[in-house]
Amino acid sequence: MGGHHWLSHQLSSIVGEPTEIGLSHATEWVLMAVSVSIAVIALLMAVNIYRKKTDEAPTSFIGQFFYNKWHIDELYNTVIVNPLNRFAGFLKNSIEKQVIDGAVNGTGKLVQYSARQLRLIQNGQVGYYILFMVLGIVLLFLLWFNDTLLLRFFHNLIK
């Protein structure tokens, strides 16, 4: 019994020979008997119903239920398809566009914004320029003569 598992040998060189997990013959016989009898019963029921040759939709609750394919489609739509679609739409429209791509584009915008601001320092007044240069020299002096303090600060910062 059982088919020949030729597909399972396809990748045997990589993943190794598969271990056979076969079912016992008795189980297989039982399974076959049960499934065949269910099928035969259902067949007889169907023949019984369709002999009446009614084309209109059934009115009974159970009839309706079966007529609408157990409402599986609707159930499936509400439980899986719609939430999935909504979730995917949320990722596509909100997260992707605004958060992730927004962060990338935001970096670009930030550079452009700071460019506009930095440009203003360059106002063409020699007096300002010299003032900035003097401030720069003062800053250098401050840094130079407080170097141990600063170095300790950086050291602590890194630690």
Binding site: Q112, A115, R119, W144, L151
Partner: peptide, 26 residues
């Protein structure tokens, strides 16, 4: 040597910042 590690990087970074960022808008 001692102070180099503070002053020079500061100069380099501010020069790069001013040069590159301001050039973007020109």
């Amino acid at each position: 040597e001692k102070t180099w590690v503070i002053i020079l990087p500061l100069g380099i970074v501010s020069t790069l910042l001013v040069g590159n960022v301001t050039a973007v808008f020109q």
